[in-house]
Structures are given as C-alpha cells and as structure tokens.
Simulated scan of single mutants.
Amino acid sequence: MKTHQHAMVITPLSLAAALTLASGQLSAELKTQTMEYQVNGTTFTGYMAYDDETEGKRPGVLVVHEWWGHNEFAREQAERLAEAGYTAFALDMYGSGKLAEHPEDAQAFMKEATKDMDQVKARFMAAKELLQAHDTVDSSMIAAQGYCFGGAVVLNMARLGVDLDAVVSYHGALGSPIKAEPGNVKPRIHVYTGGADKMVPSDQVSGLVKEMQDAEADLTLVNFPGVLHSFTNPGADKVAEEFNMPIAYNEEAANRSWEGTMRLYQEVFSN
C-alpha cells in the first residue's frame, strides 16, 4: 500500500507524548490505550487495542463508531480485532466528550461532524496516521470498518480514494453526494445490510451496486432478509424500546458479517 499524503497535520500532542494509558491490560496479552489527539484545534479521544505478545508488526484496522459517538460498543469491536491478531484503533469523529444518549443529540453530533467532507476526511486521516505510527502496526496494511454512521464514513473514504486495503460497512448508509470514480477506489469493499432496514432502503442498495460497478470497484454486498438496522449491536433492542426506533440486534447476521470480515482481512493481508 502506498503512503497517502494529505494536508492534515497532527499536533505533537497526538503522538507518543500524548498517550494516556487507560486500562492497561485486559488479559495476559491484550492491551489497550486511550489516546487523545488533535485535529484543527479540536481534541478527540480514541482507543487502541492490541495483543502485546504477538511478535512483529501486524495489520491495523480503524473502527468508526455509530451515530451515538465513540462508545463502549466501538471499543469492544477494537478489542475483538486485537484478539483476532490485529492492532485496532476505535477513532472519534465527534470530539472528546461528545457521546449521545438521545437520538436528537446523536443527530446533532452527526450533522456537525459531516457538515463538509474535508472535515470528515481530516478526522479520519488523523486517526489513520496514529494507527500507522503505532509500534505494532505494519503501516502498509490498513483496513477500516464502520457501523451505521461509521459505515457511511468508511465508504466515503473509499470513494475519495483513501489508501486502504479493505473497507467494511455494517448497516451503514449507502447513498452519498460523493460518487466513486473508475480507478479511484483502492480497497476491497464489503457491505453488510439488513433487508428490512428502513434507514437503508433498497434504492440505496441498488444505487451502491451500480455506482461501484461503474467505478470498477471490488464490492461484495450481503443482504440479510428481514433484518433491521443496527443488527450487530446487542444493545439495539433496548434502544429500540426506549426510543421507538426500527432497530434490532440479530445474532446470525452479526456473526455472519463478522466471519465474512475476518475472511476478507485474511485474504487482503496475506497477499
């Protein structure tokens, strides 16, 4: 993978001197770090997870959170990736302390974060550089996976030509004002969506397939019949009941999408 050059400059605070070691060790091997970093004067808080006993450098995976913000679910996904042999960084797209407990707050945070695509890309690229700079990471092997809002983010990074080996979207929005261009989409793309997801209607699904075909991108799309939005998150049912939202956890879809992701990473990182 080629080194990607961009205009964002991470302040010195975002590197080793800015590390805040949080929970240390989760087990004999798994280690985590809470990391503060800055982008354009705003402070963000991410979460790095890796297996300290794995020898040598390994691929890195960025995890982009749901519209609620950088929460425990995102950190748990980073830990799962670390257990699978990767170094994972659950990044922050909203800014430190911005974690929604109500859909209205989530909508407001998401609207502010995505007010222009340059800002979205800057925040993503800052996190990517942090992951690539980690001692355990082979900087030429980077993937990104996102959930809901995060799924849309990683797909847009692929559309913008960001240098990634793989991108995975779980129940993410598939439509975008950005359109992929032939020869510009670098990663292999996996999209996992629910057939009954009211937030990702069928026209978005068909639109993405046509867009990626026209762009000559490597797309695998899996549609789970009858499955609702947020199917990977075990906390979705509680949220659905509290706020009357059409979302639900689905264990089979969650497991199959994770297994497909692991196969994808094994393939792209073994070449």
Rank of each mutant, 00 (worst) to 15 (best):
A22W: 12
E36L: 03
Y47V: 06
L21Q: 03
M93Y: 09
L26M: 09
A28W: 00
E101T: 15
K98G: 05
T54K: 12
E55H: 00
Q77Y: 00
H70S: 15
E76P: 03
E104Q: 15
G60E: 10
A49Y: 02
L19Q: 12
W67C: 09
G24E: 10
K98I: 06
T32A: 13
Y94P: 14
T42A: 04
E76A: 12
A88Y: 04
T20V: 06
V61M: 06
E66F: 08
F44V: 07
V64G: 00
Q38Y: 08
V61S: 04
G97M: 04
A100Y: 07
E29C: 07
V64R: 04
E36W: 05
P103F: 00
T87G: 02
A113R: 15
V64N: 02
L19S: 09
K98Q: 15
G56Q: 13
T34H: 11
S27L: 01
F109Y: 15
E79T: 02
M110C: 11
K57P: 00
A78R: 06
E83F: 02
Q25T: 11
K31Y: 01
T32I: 15
G56H: 08
S27M: 01
G60Y: 08
W67I: 14
A84M: 14
L62T: 03
E104A: 11
R80Y: 06
A108G: 07
G56A: 02
R58G: 02
F44G: 08
L30Y: 09
E55L: 05
E76D: 15
S96K: 09
A82V: 09
Q107G: 12
R75V: 01
L30I: 14
P59C: 07
Y94G: 12
A108K: 04
E66I: 02
